[in-house]
Lab assay of single mutants.
Amino acid sequence: TPAEQLLSKCPWKEYKSDSGKPYYYNSQTKESRWAKPKELEDLEGYQNTIV
C-alpha cells in the first residue's frame, strides 16, 4: 500500500531492547532514542487514516 511504502522509506525503525522495551533508531543519522520520533508517529497516523 502507499502508506506501507512511506513507512518503509522512513529512516526511523522500532526495535526492542534486551529488556523488551521499544526504542527507535534512525539509520541515516545513527541516532537512537526511547521516545517515538514525531516523523514516525505522523506516518503511522497517516497509515491508520488510509486503512
Rank of each mutant, 00 (worst) to 15 (best):
T1C: 08
T1M: 04
T1F: 15
P2W: 09
P2M: 15
P2H: 05
P2N: 15
P2S: 15
A3F: 13
A3N: 15
A3C: 02
E4R: 10
E4Q: 02
E4V: 03
E4G: 07
E4K: 02
E4Y: 00
E4D: 12
Q5W: 05
L6I: 10
L6G: 15
L6T: 15
L6S: 15
L6N: 10
L7I: 13
L7R: 14
L7Q: 01
S8C: 08
S8N: 09
S8V: 12
S8T: 11
K9S: 12
K9T: 06
K9V: 05
C10Q: 15
C10W: 08
C10N: 09
C10E: 03
P11V: 06
P11T: 12
P11C: 12
W12E: 10
W12Q: 01
K13D: 06
K13W: 03
E14S: 04
E14F: 05
E14R: 10
Y15W: 00
Y15K: 10
K16Y: 11
K16H: 12
K16F: 09
S17A: 07
S17W: 00
S17G: 08
S17F: 03
S17L: 05
D18L: 11
G20C: 02
G20M: 06
G20V: 00
G20L: 01
K21V: 08
K21R: 12
K21C: 04
K21Q: 10
P22N: 08
P22L: 12
P22S: 10
P22R: 06
P22W: 03
Y23T: 03
Y23R: 03
Y23I: 05
Y24W: 12
Y24P: 01
Y25W: 05
Y25C: 02
Y25G: 02
Y25D: 00
Y25S: 04
Y25I: 03
S27P: 00
S27Y: 10
S27R: 04
S27V: 12
S27D: 03
S27G: 04
Q28N: 15
Q28T: 08
Q28S: 06
T29Q: 01
T29K: 01
K30E: 06
K30A: 08
K30I: 01
K30L: 06
E31W: 00
E31Q: 10
E31G: 00
S32G: 05
R33F: 04
R33D: 03
R33Y: 05
W34D: 10
W34F: 09
W34T: 14
A35Q: 13
A35W: 04
A35V: 14
A35P: 01
A35D: 13
A35E: 14
A35H: 15
A35R: 11
K36M: 12
K36R: 11
P37L: 01
K38P: 12
K38R: 10
K38V: 08
E39R: 02
E39D: 11
L40E: 14
L40T: 07
L40M: 11
L40H: 03
E41W: 05
E41C: 05
E41F: 11
D42A: 05
D42H: 07
D42C: 01
D42Q: 15
L43D: 12
L43W: 15
L43F: 12
E44D: 14
E44K: 09
E44R: 08
G45V: 12
G45Y: 09
Y46A: 14
Y46F: 07
Y46H: 15
Y46N: 01
Q47F: 02
Q47T: 04
Q47N: 07
Q47W: 04
N48R: 08
N48G: 09
T49P: 07
I50W: 08
I50V: 15
I50F: 06
I50Q: 12
V51G: 15
V51Y: 05
